[in-house]
Design a protein around this nucleic acid. Structure first.
Lengths: 148, 148
DNA sequence: CCATATTGACATTATAAACGTCAATATGAC
DNA sequence: GTCATATTGACGTTTATAATGTCAATATGG
């Protein structure tokens, strides 16, 4: 049996966690010349290697029109470039430039240093458990909304 | 020792969790005649019984000027009322009306039903662990930003 | 009593994102 | 190949959430 009170608390802790996490990211981005939304695009491309704008939108779970703006910024800044898309002539594949890759890798590296420091005192097994709980919870919530 | 990769994943899961949770709340608010920000105020007052606008702002960790708007809405809708504040004559205490209390209690009750259903399959001990991990993580992140 | 702080009210701005729509062009079924 | 349908990029509008700035009123505390 689950304890609904604790579960309720846990769910609402997601907001403060997210806010501090994003504040930390913003902090780390200070003076680097990369915006938060630019970072989001680059991070997707770090794992995806190349993707169309709609692909990225799906990954980020936001609308393609907004991603378009994000991507255009990174193109302007020379952090990404367009590659011919064999599957769709109008929709180019977006990929990291050398500059973009160096930048996002540096950003992520620094973030990992921070993560390491905030993780002091936490047990690996507990983190694994938390990861499982949060994942399950998120999936179940999505399903619950989807249905009714 | 902690596993920074897993920890990193866990931190970024806070966003999808929060989004589905808030989507669920919005869903539950549909047709009730209560806005998301109205709900936030009422929920604070459910645990605080009475509070000034600046008090609520501190609880919600947002600016008092914005909370003022939120509170004014609930006052207009007859969900909250002003009480004389012995500690400050200009800053009234805000408290739930019968109507407001009934409404927020009903909303929370329904949310608990949903929480119960999405918690199926999760172990109480695991939830407790997750709660501890997330709490620690959030605190540490806040500290880390605060300092350097 | 008076300097200082708090509060409410209001206006402006920022950010993240949704929504609507158009024209261009691709794609896929025939 | 042609044509109906879908996809995409571009652009404009709108919404929600919140921060910021500022003023006047009024409280509070030394």
């Amino acid at each position: 049996m689950t304890d609904p009170e604790k579960l309720y608390k846990l769910i609402w802790l997601s907001r403060p966690l997210m806010q501090s996490a994003e504040a930390a990211v913003e902090h780390g981005l200070d003076g680097i010349g990369l915006t938060v939304r630019g970072r989001a695009v680059l991070e997707v491309l770090l794992t995806e290697d190349e993707a169309t704008v709609p692909d990225i939108a799906q990954k980020l779970e936001i609308k393609r029109q907004y991603v378009q703006l994000m991507v255009n910024e990174t193109l302007t800044d020379g952090l990404t470039l367009k590659r011919e898309n064999p599957r769709h002539k109008r929709s180019a594949l977006i990929a990291l430039t050398q500059k973009g890759r160096a930048l996002i890798e540096d950003v992520v590296r620094r973030e990992m240093v921070l993560v390491r420091s905030v993780g002091v005192g936490l047990d690996t097994a507990d983190i694994k458990t938390a990861l499982k709980v949060i994942t399950t919870l998120t999936e179940n919530l999505k399903k619950a909304i989807g249905n009714g």
